[in-house]
Design a protein around this nucleic acid. Structure first.
Length: 272
DNA sequence: GGCCAGGCTTTTC
DNA sequence: GAAAAGCATGGC
């Protein structure tokens, strides 16, 4: 990876196969938007980023300090996805998925935002998930340059289910409040989940009302970067039935979450 | 108007 | 314990 520092931006090259738009909009994160000029906008950990990708370069309108301390890590630019994808390619369907949709990285999202987002995702579709999250941020986040921050667990823990009515989140509102309370008061300990094997996180997260196996796996994968977490939603269930009736291939062991993300996006956008 | 959406809880058998 | 019903909302 090569980095050039300009007055208002950072130019990155030699970043492997990373694809910004695909990674930002393949169903793992819900707040990235592309404007009419091909710039992607996102807000992560209270900081707004404008970025675009051209053939061989990434341009990020940020400081070198923020690139090094936040964005480089968020976009997982230092992991060798070529190596991972080559290993996955020993399976025929995974090979098709990684070749058809190259450049997806797992985004290292804020754990609370990931948990809250995937609580909202249950029995829901992606456009509406984005709408609810947008209203959540506009209503309860802090306004900054470029948009609104994702409201903290502490902020939401001070609210009632009725306060969330403007989100039109339906039955999920009570789950958001329960999650916020348990995270804010430390009953669910994010630091310990970070430092523990994945099984601990599974048990802890499912103490929250409205968090089952699938939401827990998504939170562990996208919020805690436990890349062997394996969320099974309706799409992945279809994949398992259609392609892997005898189980998931061993070439994905240790990185099942990454394999899952490629298959999820491929099955949703390319197959049939 | 019925079906579906990155499911989970509650109720019933 | 397994299976089914119920849950809010909105796009198609």
């Amino acid at each position: 990876m090569k980095i050039t520092e300009n007055k208002y931006s950072i130019i990155v090259s030699d970043f492997g196969s990373f694809n910004l738009g695909l990674s930002a909009d393949c169903g793992q994160a819900f707040r990235w938007k592309e404007d009419d000029d091909g710039f992607w906008h996102g807000i992560v950990c209270g900081k707004h980023l404008k970025a675009r990708q051209d053939t061989d370069t990434l341009t990020l309108y940020t400081s070198k300090e923020d690139f090094e301390s936040l964005w480089k890590n968020y976009f997982d630019l230092e992991t060798d996805y070529a190596d991972i994808c080559q290993n996955l390619s020993s399976d025929v369907y995974l090979r098709r998925a990684v070749e058809t949709c190259p450049g997806i990285h797992i985004l290292k999202q804020d754990p609370w935002e990931a948990l809250c987002s995937f609580i909202i995702s249950q029995n829901n579709n992606i456009p509406r998930i984005k709408g609810i999250i947008e209203r959540l941020c506009e209503t309860f986040g802090d306004e900054i340059q470029g948009g609104f921050t994702f409201p903290s667990a502490e902020r939401l823990a001070s609210l009632t289910v009725e306060d969330l009515a403007p989100l039109r989140a339906g039955f999920r509102a009570k789950y958001i409040i329960d999650a916020a309370k348990k995270v804010a008061d430390g009953e669910v300990d994010f630091e310990r989940i970070t430092d523990s094997p994945i099984e601990y996180g599974r048990e802890e997260l499912q103490k929250i009302c409205g968090v089952g196996a699938k939401v827990a796996e998504c939170t562990l994968l996208y919020g805690f970067y436990k890349i062997d977490a394996f969320p099974v939603d309706v799409w992945v269930r279809r994949i398992m039935e259609e392609m892997y009736p005898d189980g998931f291939p061993g070439c994905a062991d240790g990185v099942k979450g990454i394999a899952q993300q490629y298959l999820f996006h491929w099955r949703r956008t390319c197959v049939q």
